[in-house]
Design a protein around this nucleic acid. Structure first.
Lengths: 147, 147
DNA sequence: CAAGCACTTTACGTTAACGTAAACCTCGTC
DNA sequence: GACGAGGTTTACGTTAACGTAAAGTGCTTG
C-alpha cells in the first residue's frame, strides 16, 4: 500500500549483503506487523539493543533476527522473560565461564522439554478439532437433507 | 504427602465407572496442579459449569475433561476467550442451526492453521536450541582442556 | 463444644505486555 | 517557512489471568 513513487529509498533499497543493511523502527514494525511501541518495549526489556544515529534507533541484521526469534517465542506462549533468558545467555556465550554455560544447557534442556510437551499437546488438540469438525459436518448434512 | 490413614475416601474412592464419579474443587485442583481459585475463575469465565450440592460445587467427568482441554489450550498460548469459543460452540452443536455450525467450522479451521504454524515454529526453535546447545558444549570442551 | 478442615463469597491487588496520548525534534519538500 | 512524515521521550491507561486476604458456612473429630 502506498508504494507509488518509482524509487522510495526506505533507507537503503536493497542490493546490500543483508549483513550491512540497517532498518528503521518503522521498517521493522511493518516487516513483522507489530507497532513501534512493541519494538521499543522489547528494547526496554533487554531483548534488543539498537545503536543510535543522533537520537534515532538504528537496527542491524542481528536485531532483526532477535526480533524474529522473540516473536516466534511469543507465538509459542513464552514470556519475554523466558525468551530473554536464552537470548542473553546466547550472547554471553563466547566469553562464558563454565557455570554460566552449564546453566545455559539446563535452560535449553528445559525449553526443549517444553517444546516436546507442546508437540504432544498439539497432536491431541488436532485430534479433538478433527473430531469436532467431523461431527459438525455430519449435523450440517442432516440439516441439508431435511431442507 | 499426608496420605497416612489406611482408608481416606476422598469422595468416592474409585471403582466407579468414571462417568459417574464426581470431584470436589480441591480434588480437581490437585489433579491438575492449579489452585481452586483458578477453577472458580474458569467457571466465572464460562468454561466450566459444575452443579451444586448445597453450596458446594460438584464436578462431573465432563467438567474434568473441559478443564483438561482448557489447560492444554493454555499451554499452547490460547486465551481463555479463544478456548471458550470452541468449547461452548461444541456444546451448542447438537441443536445448532446452520449458521452457527458454519461459524464453528471456520473457527476450527482457524485454530488448525494456528497449530500448523506453531508446529513450524517449534521445528525452527528446536533447531536453534540444538545449535546453541552445540556451541555451548564446544566452548565447555575448550575450557576443560585448558584446565 | 472447640478445633480443624474444606469449602464458600466478596473484593481489592498484582503482573505482563503492550496501547494511547501529549509534546517535542528533524528532516525533505512545496 | 509551514507542514507532513517519521522519529523521540514521558507517562498514564488497559486487559487478561489470576493471587491474596477477610469473613462466613458446614461437617466430623478429639
Amino acid at each position: 500500500m502506498s508504494r507509488s513513487s518509482p524509487q522510495a529509498p526506505d533507507a537503503q533499497t536493497d542490493a546490500l549483503p543483508r549483513q550491512q543493511r540497517t532498518y528503521s523502527i518503522g521498517e521493522l514494525a511493518r516487516m513483522f506487523e507489530v507497532t513501534p511501541r512493541t519494538i521499543r518495549f522489547y528494547e526496554q526489556e533487554g531483548l534488543l539493543a539498537p545503536t543510535r544515529q543522533g537520537q534515532k534507533r538504528i537496527y542491524r541484521e542481528k536485531d532483526r533476527v532477535r526480533l524474529k526469534l522473540t516473536l516466534r517465542g511469543k507465538r509459542l506462549g513464552f514470556s519475554l522473560a523466558e525468551i530473554r533468558e536464552v537470548v542473553m545467555m546466547y550472547d554471553a556465550m563466547p566469553d562464558g565461564n563454565a557455570r554460566q554455560l552449564k546453566r545455559l544447557l539446563e535452560i535449553l534442556a528445559d525449553k526443549r522439554a517444553n517444546l516436546e510437551r507442546q508437540l504432544e499437546d498439539i497432536r491431541l488438540m488436532r485430534m479433538e478439532i478433527d473430531d469436532v469438525d467431523q461431527r459438525a459436518r455430519e449435523v450440517l448434512r442432516q440439516l441439508d437433507q431435511e431442507a
